[in-house]
């Protein structure tokens, strides 16, 4: 239950995920309330991306349940989850390299009626003016930062109520990372709930309301982002001080 007494927007309850015989996620529970920025931090291989991919419907949990907007969504395919208002901006961006920036954005709105696309695109260009300048360019020729912007813009085109971002800072220069995180905050202010997976714990905790810390398939800590930022164990393990 959230503070306002409403059901959480996303409720993951004790899920277990396997890759063949490998037990990758060993019973994870987490909640995201409407309007929040929640972050999932942890080292490489802790299972953060696996968790997001499972919520998005790309992987199936062997045990446990997932509820989105009060409805159970276990076993619903990824392409159907988009229609329910959940969108994932995947690790490594995975933009369509051979399509133009504009076409990529159009594909992001695949689940929406055609009449909406123009307005959604203007909205995305509002967050990312750079994409408008590059509109006709083939996406594979964009710089790393621009590709990340495109991936986020594309995920925004489906008008999600919950947007999941997997490592948006990966491979970007510090100045770009700040810019990307500013935009994440802006998108949140504009009404999109955010679930953020990051290795850059410092940045993630600085914009999040709440956080979960993952280690080898389990959640080892959870709490307010501010508290975790000042927690000695977190500082030692993830903030390098």
């Amino acid at each position: 239950m959230s503070e306002t007494g409403k059901l959480p927007l996303l409720k993951v309850n004790d899920i277990h995920v396997y890759y063949g015989a490998i037990h990758a996620i060993k019973g994870i529970s987490l909640e995201v309330n409407e309007g929040e920025i929640v972050t999932l931090i942890g080292a490489n291989g802790a299972g953060k991306s696996t968790t997001l991919n499972t919520i998005a419907g790309l992987l199936r949990p062997r045990q446990g349940s997932i509820a989105f907007a009060g409805m159970p969504v276990d076993g619903i395919a990824a392409n159907k989850m988009v229609y329910k208002g959940l969108s994932l901006c995947p690790e490594g961006r995975r933009i369509f390299q051979q399509m133009t920036v504009k076409e990529n954005l159009e594909m992001g709105a695949f689940s929406r009626p055609n009449e909406e696309i123009g307005a959604s695109m203007e909205r995305v260009y509002g967050f990312f003016p750079r994409l408008k300048e590059r509109e006709k360019q083939v996406a594979g020729t964009l710089s790393g930062g621009e590709q990340q912007m495109l991936a986020m813009g594309r995920a925004l085109m489906s008008k999600p109520t919950l947007m999941m971002l997997d490592e948006p800072s990966m491979g970007l220069a510090p100045i770009l990372v700040e810019q990307i995180f500013d935009i994440i905050r802006e998108m949140n202010h504009a009404g999109t709930t955010i679930l953020l997976v990051e290795q850059n714990a410092q940045m993630a905790l600085s914009i999040a309301n709440r956080a979960y810390v993952m280690e080898t398939g389990r959640i080892t800590m959870e709490g307010d982002a501010d508290e975790l930022m000042h927690d000695d164990n977190v500082r030692k393990a993830y903030l390098g001080s």
């Binding site: 790309l58 995947p90 594909m107 695949f110």
Partner: peptide, 22 residues
Amino acid sequence: KMGKAMRCVSEDRGAAELMGIN
């Protein structure tokens, strides 16, 4: 729309699914 969906699936099946493409 179907033609563009085909190009997406051809390039990255997983990303295409995330767009809502069947």
